[in-house]
Design a protein around this nucleic acid. Sequence first.
DNA 1: CTCATACGTTAGTGAACACTAACGCATCGG
DNA 2: CCGATGCGTTAGTGTTCACTAACGTATGAG
Lengths: 100, 100
Amino acid sequence: MVDAFSAAAEPNRRRILQLLASRPRTVGEVAAEFPVTRSAISQHLLLLASAGLVAAERHGRQRHYRVLPSGLRKVQAEIDRFWTDELDLLVTDAQLRSKT
Amino acid sequence: MVDAFSAAAEPNRRRILQLLASRPRTVGEVAAEFPVTRSAISQHLLLLASAGLVAAERHGRQRHYRVLPSGLRKVQAEIDRFWTDELDLLVTDAQLRSKT
DNA sequence: CTCATACGTTAGTGAACACTAACGCATCGG
DNA sequence: CCGATGCGTTAGTGTTCACTAACGTATGAG
């Protein structure tokens, strides 16, 4: 999983990124917001880290994960490159037509 | 793969959607733009169809795939819901700081 | 009709994914 | 010290994915 867009796309990871956007958190803190185990969250965080989207900092026996703006910027760039004018036109055109 | 965002995120499928945005195409026409086999493209198209992003129409022995604006709108909505103000702030703040 | 040919989908495979269970390792109370 | 507790990661498993190879089907030349 090298692609930042794909890494950020998985539903749980989307929410993890949003949580970490407000402030850094430990694995346990993040996991508390989800119905799955700490382990699953830990692995999502490791994957996000391998995609350059988050980084961890040791703090005693905890690990504070935070979002990396550089990785986030990469996601934004890929989203922008994906969402072409042609795709946007299809959406807006269809909406106009449905409002007629 | 129910999630439209995740379905659209895979790099090949991103480009398939862009190709189909300009005009409907057959599986072979799409596959000609990729280094992989028709079969692989066919399966990507089937997955996109199961996510409600594209639909096929039989035309002789060919199948003309086209983008469904309704599905595209779903993707746009999920992207918007994902990309919160907090995430955006992280990116723009970091950019401002780097330009200082 | 019939056989070659082009089109798209199904069968089959190796790798990656998402998850729980078991583990290692610090830290803290006693 | 040292055992218990809490934190995060590795081991193990079933599922899904991305792909090529083989297939079925329908069209078109003769």
